[in-house]
Nucleic acid binder design. Structure first.
Lengths: 141, 141
DNA sequence: AATAAGTATGAGAATGGTTTGCAATTGTAA
DNA sequence: TTACAATTGCAAACCATTCTCATACTTATT
């Protein structure tokens, strides 16, 4: 129970820092999110959060995700097929490799690619606000 | 009417080549698609195709788009916000710049980026089957 | 600790893009 | 031309997500 208390107070701090009200549901969802290394969708987050906090509805999961995304605490990924998948906002930006067979997601980052993207946009008279890059892959063999 | 006849026979040839049955609806939709330089969504294609072929339903647009996509004649783009947007399959692969203010879409291609993508995937033990790259941009000023 | 004021929540209805079931129509090969 | 399978329009179904609304909770203020 000491452990639970520590997690709760840590999440409370995080939520306060994000400038949002602290509720049991938000603490639970944020804890689940920061504990997930995969990229779960809303239903899966709902399932996981409900184990910690039974008073949790799917509507609240969606609402909270929207709030946390707005606060920059959560990132939303819309991969091909199926609904959005979420992850706790990482320190630094990355893109994704999606395993077509398992659905597994691997993160990567290429400064060189981002430079090229900026150059291309600039050549068209644009500034890149954000981008999306996903490599849909199959294991080599 | 000569013009219409020519278009029809050209689309008929294209559809036959794609190995699908030739119907008035498919001819009309394919003609509209090949005539569009923007990236229309299903509703818009429905509107345009209906002008050519009144016996056209939205369901058929979706069904036909799925068929043509399967035959490699049409490409489906799922940009952020809103539904899928389509384009006649181009000769060569390209990615997109999306103007955040106007929704306008610009195509680009970077061989260098694609090489880097392959290298990154390979380093993770993967082959890239296909990818998705969109730059959400705002006009420089 | 009690209160007020505003916010978040659960349940379920509503939404919007897309798909599907079905009976009627059409395309194609013989 | 016939015969059969594929395609169509319509409306109902779907699915992920959002919204409505009455109730419960947080937070700032006493």
């Amino acid at each position: 129970m000491e452990l639970t208390k520590n997690i709760t107070s840590k999440m409370t701090t995080n939520l306060r820092a994000a400038g949002v009200r602290v509720t049991r549901q938000r603490v639970a969802l944020l804890a689940v999110l920061q504990d997930s290394t995969d990229h779960p969708d809303a239903e899966e987050l709902y399932r996981r959060a409900k184990m910690v906090e039974p008073a949790m509805s799917l509507a609240t999961v969606y609402r909270t995700l929207a709030v946390l995304e707005g606060a920059g605490v959560v990132h939303r990924n819309s991969f091909e097929g199926g609904g959005a998948r979420f992850e706790a906002a990482p320190k630094d930006h990355h893109d994704h490799i999606v395993d077509l067979d398992s659905g597994e997601v691997i993160e990567f980052h290429s400064e060189r690619i981002e430079e090229l993207q900026s150059e291309i946009a600039a050549a068209c008279g644009y500034d890149v606000v954000h981008h999306r890059m996903e490599l849909y892959c199959r294991k080599k063999r």
